[in-house]
Design a protein around this nucleic acid. Sequence first.
DNA 1: TCTGGGGTCCTAGGACCC
DNA 2: TCTGGGGTCCTAGGACCC
Length: 424
Amino acid sequence: MTSSTKSFALIDCNSFYASCERVFRPDLAKIPIVVLSNNDGCVIARSAEAKPFIKMGEPYFKIKDQLRRHNILAFSSNYALYGDMSERVMMTLESRLPSVEVYSIDEAFADLTGLPEPLDQLGYSLRADVLQITGIPVGVGIASTKTLAKLANAAAKRWQRQTGGVVDIRDPERRDKLLKAMPVEDVWGVGRRMTEHLKAMNIKTAWDMSNADTATLRKRFSVLVEKTARELRGISCLDMEPTAPAKKEICSSRAFGQRVYDLKGLQEAVASYTTRAAEKLRKQQSLCKVIQVGVRTGLFNPDEKHYARSLQCHLPYPTDDTRLLIQAAMQGLDHIYKEGPAYAKASIMLLDLCQRNEYTPDLFAPSQPGGTDHLMQTLDQINQRWGRNTIKPARVPASPGWGMQRQLLSPSYTTRLDQLWVAR
DNA sequence: TCTGGGGTCCTAGGACCC
DNA sequence: TCTGGGGTCCTAGGACCC
């Protein structure tokens, strides 16, 4: 028996959000850019030119001077634009590759096993095609396991000029050379805490981890860490997941643009988030048995009194009806609301989900109203066609006082007719 | 004044059962 | 001194990802 070696690629967009902002602003090609989180809170993406000056996660208000000094342009995040650009990139990859797994908004794995050599040439042509069709630059890492492909991709990014953005480490010699050059914290699945532990065990590089005793890793940490070490050795433990499984929980949570002090404001926010979460729920055709509502004050201002509560409410039967979910969330909110605190954030979680077609109605459950399915379907269709919140629950305000701050927002070039490019 | 949002998986430990 | 043993299920919390 010969074990056939697999080939994986990890294709990753460079500075994705920043690159999206540039696609429709060619004048920004050489200008450093950062993209901010919701409410213009902190930095979540940086173009290559901005990286030397600005750290990831820095609060915007703290770095305004630095941005000005280095002529760095800041943008509010524009998820309508990024989501749409992501779809274009993924469709381009899917049209050229037999098996693609969309891993995140800016990354995809591909199974290259059995495709004609040389695979690095395939990598170069993917790069060129995606750039030409979408305007987004990508890097490609190729290896015999997913974890190694991630590492190869990191190398393609780090040594972009030398590698042309494509790195193939299927050759064991090249693989080992890279493993020795990469610090252990750059390994996929090794975060900050794990890095500390591993370093204490004298495991400092990816190479050290690939040679570590797997039984010890499993015992001291978990089976995931063990798998990571095996994958670094070239033993594939993580397979492609071609179709995304249904989510097991759905969350909608957001910090407010301004502090909220009254119950009415919280009710509006909770109703809005519940509406969003219910849309996601119906999109994957699930029903929800438990809804959790939470509120909290700010985390960082020492002058504000802390208050945080959350509560789970059990629905009488699994449902995807926005109205029932809002009703339950409102009852929960009543229980955890207290007058006084300066509320900074509310959240909704839909838990204990089941698939619509797997659900067997409970003989002893309270009688279940029929006929709401069609209503929710129609609602979704109208909002899909005419834009989010064309039809919405009365409690959801059109422009709430607590809404997001996005003062540096670029136009939604690709998803809004009224914000298209204008040719003169 | 101003510090993101949305997920997954694993493990330990408690509750409970026989 | 010694205070059963073994199993399942659930939950909270930790760690990780982008």
